[in-house]
Amino acid sequence: MVTERWAVAALRFFLVVLFGVLVVFQTMSLPGGIAYHAQQNPHDAPLRWPLTAIAVFLVLCVQVVVVATWKLLTLVKKDRIFTPASLKWVDAIVWAVAAAWLVVAGMLLFVGFNADDPGMPMLLFLVTVAITVVGLLMVVMRALLRQATALRSDMETVI
């Protein structure tokens, strides 16, 4: 129990740090870096705003996962993780991962058909596969959570 409490506290600390870093990236670093790239490479200038929107959206998806994880940790701390309330936060994670997957898969298709070399399409393919694995893992974890919730409610009915 002590280890769980420390793990939850440490995870919460790093979630706050991650969220703060994501806000900085979302508001300053990514838009500034993309603007600088467009300035240095005028042939890429028309992609500045679409790339900025995509980057900000992908960071938003990660932020949704961070907030949902925080809420799930709150339910763990209150010993309410095996309740229907937790399913909505897992659903939020699944939907955020699905939205990110759609955007990255779209980027993969666009870049794949327009690339001169295989480097960027391969990188986007790797990211797409990684997001797919995370999304499918979350779907499986959601199913396990649903089963555990049903079992816990059955046990509470018996007791």
Rank of each mutant, 00 (worst) to 15 (best):
Q39T: 15
V8R: 04
Q63M: 14
G33R: 02
L75F: 06
I54A: 13
V134W: 01
V127T: 02
F19W: 14
L123W: 12
V129S: 02
I159G: 11
I34C: 01
T3M: 13
A55W: 08
V56N: 06
Q39H: 14
V64H: 03
R12H: 04
L144F: 15
A9S: 05
A38P: 00
S86T: 01
V133C: 10
P50K: 03
L145C: 01
R146F: 07
F110C: 07
M122N: 14
V140M: 06
W70K: 03
L75T: 00
F19H: 15
V56P: 06
L30M: 10
T83K: 02
A96E: 03
G32Y: 06
P46I: 03
P50N: 08
V97E: 03
V97W: 00
D116P: 01
S29V: 12
L145R: 05
W101L: 13
T69K: 09
V24W: 01
L73C: 06
M155I: 15
L87Y: 08
A143R: 13
L137M: 13
L18K: 05
S153K: 14
P50Q: 03
L22W: 01
M122C: 12
L137T: 15
F82K: 05
V104P: 00
L51F: 11
T52H: 11
V24F: 08
L51I: 11
T3R: 08
A100F: 02
P118D: 03
V2K: 05
T149E: 04
L22D: 10
G119M: 09
A96M: 04
L137Y: 11
